[in-house]
Design a protein around this nucleic acid. Structure first.
Lengths: 117, 117
DNA sequence: CAGAATCCCTGATGATACTG
DNA sequence: CAGTATCATCAGGGATTCTG
């Protein structure tokens, strides 16, 4: 009876799926950066204060796999790689916007409870 | 110069704040369960297939701190504790619904790319 | 410039046992 | 019943080094 304890990794509902797409540590921030338009790797890293190369690469790869961002490599020296939102990525904007609105509206309530900025 | 590398923990924008509220491993699932109405601890644990007592307790406490759920303890033996959404918790529903819609609409695209259910 | 590779540590999660 | 406490595990993420 040891082979049936692993089903907690299945996607229980679509909300979870969506959460996996935007739920990474830096993903919403990356999306926000790319909402400004195409950006290069270095630009992203400088914008995302504190992110390491490894994490940026990793998150970008995952997002590329999910089809929310596009990666364009220019075959030149020195290398140049541009990242941008795909249509699928852009379709996430209403969700991020809703989350932003919620944060703005209710952040004060939460902070009141926590007695701490 | 070792005292200024810790600023990556600050909340960079309200989207991140909101994500912290619903981004926990089980939180959206807990919210969904409580959207059905008041539930007891044991009910929740049975509904959330695979969650441990520890994790359920932990997630519930965090959500209570954030003010999205209410915890009502009945002083009786055996103990009875009921959990429910607060108005703040209910105000998250549009976001979850938007995420659900997105998942339904775009899940197929993602799965196409991944070649794998 | 844009990574890949490596090592390492901490926090998140799980498993188990105990309790009012 | 609804937890708390403790120990074990394991992946997420950081720091550093190397490279086409």
């Amino acid at each position: 009876m040891k082979a049936e304890a692993q089903n907690h990794s299945r996607l229980t509902c679509e909300v979870e799926t969506t959460l996996k797409v935007i739920g990474g540590r830096w993903k919403v921030l990356i999306i926000r950066e790319l909402m400004d338009g195409v950006k290069r790797f270095g630009e992203l890293q400088r914008s995302l204060n504190g992110i390491t190369q490894k994490m940026l690469t990793q998150q970008l790869r995952e997002m590329e796999e999910d089809g929310v961002i596009d990666r364009k490599v220019y075959a030149q020296i020195p290398p140049k790689v541009e990242y941008s939102l795909t249509p699928l990525g852009e379709s996430l904007q209403p969700i991020l916007y809703a989350m932003h609105e919620w944060g703005v509206k209710h952040l004060s309530e939460i902070n009141n409870k926590k007695q701490n900025i």
